[in-house]
Each structure stands twice: as structure tokens, then as C-alpha cells.
Design a protein around this nucleic acid. Structure first.
Lengths: 184, 184
DNA sequence: TCGCTCATGTAATGGGTTACATGATTCA
DNA sequence: TGAATCATGTAACCCATTACATGAGCGA
């Protein structure tokens, strides 16, 4: 899957592994991420599969860049993947929910501490979606104005993040209430 | 992490790996799941760590059961984990959001097909939270009435699932609207 | 008779994280 | 002077999925 995220970024323009990691961190980061080491490894793979091509750009004073370009085969693979329907719901994992589910023996106070901490963190996260993320998008667009149409899609995913955090915050507040009221 | 889910279930009562999988599927399944093969492997590990103990219960006509019991060390490890604050936000992955983010070259119609399919699936998922899940919880409680207090926690996680699906559905409807209106 | 449930496991493979290794430039 | 940025990669390890293997009983 990371494979396709990489192809997606390379459709915008040729990039290095390092560049891809930067983009990912500030754009898809909240719903798709990868460590730099994995990106390098995956780039090697997709090059072996003929989906990308690379060449070295020498630099002075800093390490040479290996720049990857999307091939026609790569573009086709990307579109095919995009079009493939997602049939089965994705199984997510959420540590907090697991801790709540099994949390009774922890007792009221420790539970509330945990939940209140999460509430703070999710409020911060929401703020990031509201202020930070639009700024990043603007920066990308300033760099490559030809991606204006793509920015509409980016904005949709940003809004998802915002709504998700709203829901999480609301649920945490409700859970805190319930535990305050109904736990001894 | 699966490790602690397993300890959590064993706190309810001694169980086999098979039992744990059944519980997981119908209770934590939406925020924590595992394949049976991984459960068996992890049980072996936690036994080696002294967190659980096992004995064989012979059966006739069907395979013998290896029943696991939580040790004192296991209970302590579980509580310690529950109490440990979750400091960094969990990085989730969502294939649909990735496809939306890079989805522009797919074109209006294919995008809408994908989103409408997801809308159907998430509506089904919501229904499951509303009707199926409460029934499963009732079944567990009927079996072990002493877990009534825990059921309050279970219900909180069920409500999260419900809200999450509501949000997802709303977002999908909004996204469909935006794409219908603003894409050529 | 065919497939499902009960019940346990191993082996191979894939996906992802952490740690290691290198090295110049720039900014506080 | 010390940390961050730019830039690339490998190796070991852990977590998770898929495939394989076994076998009785039960219901359609």
C-alpha cells in the first residue's frame, strides 16, 4: 500500500526518498505514514518492478540525490489501484479504546486521568488540522500551482481529520461524564 | 499490545486461544483484532514470560483444550499497562483517505462509485453497532453476570464505534456532494 | 457428501520499526 | 560547541497475515 502512496507523490513530480518523507509527514501523515528507512526500501522494490526509474543528481557540500520518476507502467499501476474498490472494511487498532474496554480494574481516578490526557492531546490535534494543515497545503500549492485541482482532494481529507477529532473529543467528554457519574 | 488484550480477556475467566478469538471478534474486534494463529503464538510467549499458566483439558470426540489462566504476575502486568499513559497520538492508516487524496486522476465518476460503495458499507457497519453489538454484550453478561460493571466500559467503546460511523457517513456524503459539484 | 464448528499449532512471507553507519553545512 | 538539516542506505528484529496440516462430529 505504501507502494501506491509513493507512486501518488511521484505523479506530482520527480522526487527523492527524502522529499517523499517530507510530503508524507505534512500531508497524508495522519492517515498514511512511513519511516524513511521503509520508504527507501520500497523505492528500491518499485524500481525493480519497473514502476519508477531513478537517476543520481550530484550535489556539492551535501549528499547526492537519487531522484525517482514515475514510469508509464507506474502511472497505470497507480490508476488501477485507485479504481479498485475497497470491499472489506479496514480493521483499525486503537490502544485507548482497548484500555477503556479492559479498564474497570484500574479504578475511577486512573481512568479519568488517562481520558483527560487524551482529551488534551486530541484538542491539540484538532487545532493542527485547523491551522497547521491548511498552511502546509498552501505551501505545496505555491510551489506547484498546477496541482490546484488536487488540492480539492487534499482538503477533503483534511476535513475528515477535523471531523474525526471533533468526534473523538465529544466521545471523550461523554466518557469522562459517564465514569464520573457511574463509577464508585 | 495483543499481549495485553489477551491478559484482559483472561482476567474475566480462564480460556483457550480459541475462546479468546471468539470474544475478540465480537467485542474488541472493531478496535483490536488478531488472527487465531497469532493468538496461539502470543499465548506461548506470555506463558514463557510467566504471565499466564496453561493446562490441558481432555475432551472426547473433539480436540483437547489448552486452558490458560492469568497468573498474579499477569494481572500486575495488565494493570501496569492499563495505567501507563498514552503519550503520543496513534498513527492510523486509512486506505480510502489515501485513495481520495491521490484520487483526482481517477475522474469524477470512478471517484463517486468508490465513495458510494463506502457509504453503503459504513451504513451497514453502523447498523451492526446499533443492533448486533448490544446483543453480543448481553450474551456475555448472561454467561458471566459478575462482569456487569465491566459492561459499562464495553458500552463506552460501542458508543465510540457508533459515533465514528456517523462521522464517516456524514463525511462521505459531504465528499460526494463536493465532488459532484466541483469536479468536471 | 460437503462444508462448518471445534481445536491446536507450525512455517513462510510480508510489512514496519529501531538501530547502525556516514558526513558536510548551517544555525543557535 | 552541539544540534538540526540534508541525504542515503543496510541489518536485525518484531508484529501480522497466509498457507499448511490434522481430525472428529454435526447439520443441510
Amino acid at each position: 500500500m505504501l507502494k501506491y502512496a509513493i507512486l501518488g507523490f511521484l505523479r506530482y513530480r520527480p522526487m527523492t526518498g527524502y522529499d517523499i518523507e517530507q510530503w508524507m509527514e505534512t500531508s497524508t501523515g495522519h492517515f498514511w505514514h512511513a519511516k524513511i528507512s521503509q520508504i527507501y526500501a520500497t523505492l528500491k522494490q518499485v524500481e525493480a518492478d519497473g514502476l519508477v526509474r531513478s537517476h543520481i543528481e550530484p550535489q556539492e557540500g551535501r549528499p547526492d540525490r537519487r531522484v525517482y520518476t514515475l514510469t508509464d507502467g507506474g502511472e497505470a499501476a497507480l490508476t488501477a489501484w485507485l479504481a479498485a474498490p475497497i470491499v472489506e472494511p479496514e480493521m483499525k487498532k486503537d490502544t485507548l479504546l482497548l484500555k477503556v474496554f479492559f479498564g474497570l480494574p484500574l479504578g475511577k481516578d486512573a481512568l479519568l486521568t488517562q481520558l483527560r490526557l487524551q482529551l488534551e492531546l486530541h484538542k491539540l490535534q484538532k487545532q493542527e488540522y485547523e491551522t497547521q494543515t491548511p498552511q502546509e497545503m498552501a505551501r505545496f500549492l505555491a510551489d506547484q500551482p498546477e496541482l490546484a485541482a488536487d488540492a480539492l482532494m487534499w482538503e477533503l481529507t483534511r476535513r475528515f481529520g477535523e471531523s474525526y477529532e471533533d468526534t473523538y473529543i465529544q466521545w471523550l467528554q461523554e466518557a469522562i461524564q459517564v465514569i464520573e457519574d457511574q463509577l464508585a
